[in-house]
Computed example of a mutant assay.
Amino acid sequence: MNLKEIKKGLMTENGKIFIGTHTKKRLKKRGYSKGDIVSALFNGEIVERQGPSKVVIAGRDMDDNPIVVVIAKHSHFIFKLVTVMPPIDHFRFKDCV
């Protein structure tokens, strides 16, 4: 899985990103929107792979703040948002809050 595949999936009518109930709660609690996720996916880069179908993407939210998105591939152009968080680990991310 790579960013090109994720972006292409988002641009097609069949592409989707599922957001589970727990993740929706975390988004709200952390002050992120769906737009922040899309922004991170389109301007970010993969900084870590967690197996063949899950990646960690570091990017910028809609307000140009650093953001980390963890996303997993479910099937062809179907993805699941695992979590969204501010980057705070200086060992993993070069741009932290």
Rank of each mutant, 00 (worst) to 15 (best):
N2D: 15
K4Q: 10
E5K: 12
I6W: 05
K8A: 12
K8S: 13
L10H: 07
M11S: 15
T12G: 03
G15R: 05
G15F: 06
G15H: 06
I17R: 08
I17C: 06
I19N: 01
T21F: 04
H22K: 13
H22C: 02
H22W: 05
T23R: 05
K24C: 02
K24D: 10
K25L: 10
L27C: 07
K28L: 11
K29Q: 14
G31F: 07
Y32R: 08
Y32Q: 05
Y32H: 13
S33F: 07
G35C: 08
G35R: 08
D36W: 03
S39T: 07
L41G: 01
F42P: 01
E45R: 10
I46R: 01
I46Y: 02
V47P: 02
R49Y: 07
G51T: 04
G51I: 03
V55N: 01
V56A: 04
I57F: 04
A58Y: 01
M62N: 10
D64N: 14
I67Q: 05
V69T: 09
V69Q: 06
V70Q: 04
I71V: 13
K73E: 15
K73C: 07
I78T: 12
F79P: 04
T83A: 10
T83C: 11
M85A: 09
M85S: 10
I88L: 14
F91E: 15
F91N: 15
F91T: 14
F93E: 10
F93S: 08
D95R: 12
